[in-house]
Amino acid sequence: MTAKTDRVRVVRSWEWARPERPARREVLAAVPEREEAKPPLLFVPGFGHGAWAFAEHWLGHAAGRGFPAYALSLRGHGGSEPAPEATLRSYTHDVTQVAASLPRQAVLVGHGAGARVVAHAMARYPVRAAVLVAPVLGGWATFGTALRRNPAGTVPAVFGAGLRLNRRQLFSRELPDADARRHLARLGRAGRRAQWQLLTGRAPEPAVGRPPVLVLGSPDDRVLPATALTRAARGYASAPLLFPGMGHDLMLDARWREPIDAILDWLDKDPAPTHG
């Protein structure tokens, strides 16, 4: 990437001239009974997943700890409108739209490729803070890992089919088979163009407002290589929080409680923006 990407972009003629099409979006919410002046959380699922992935455990748990919690399904996923031609830009648009609709400045929590979408959204909306969970920021190394671990699910994606993830990539052995099968059955697919952009798309622009960023993941993640996780964290001048023994889907795995508690503890400490 050229040095130009670390600069503020003011003129966006193409985006103004061709605004993103509106789409009906599914947003699930769990709001605490008493308002506690904590920032709202917006969970952004990765490719193939929908808001359901967070509704399973994390939404309720966050609300139980006093955070208004919301999860959206990117267009073409979950209960949102079908969108086979969606691009990363459409997904980013979905995230900024929902974030701006919340009553207060939101914390974005992106999982998997949803973290890449969050990274793009951070350049277009001043997040209160951002959390990247097992962030698939794209690039050929991640692609190589996926090819090695799950060739049958990955090769067709190169030719426009949906990327298919298997049980061993997403969950640890501790998760009961019935649950794993139920989750796998709900997986959808991202748009063909969006999948390609994960490899070839433009790197995210710098975040507005220099928000604090937390990166976490599992060293035993079979989608995201540990080196990619460390690199992602270093990109935000930090080191990843690690949850060994868990699969890629930390929010659905057997020990889902540990990572979400770590996120909420970090937010409770009210991390300050990084002024520079």
Binding site: V10, W16, A17, H93, T96, R124
Partner: peptide, 14 residues
């Protein structure tokens, strides 16, 4: 709308 909104706080797209 795209020309009117604040660049970091989009108006609802509906």
């Amino acid at each position: 709308r795209p020309f009117t909104q604040f660049p970091d706080f989009p108006m609802p797209d509906d």
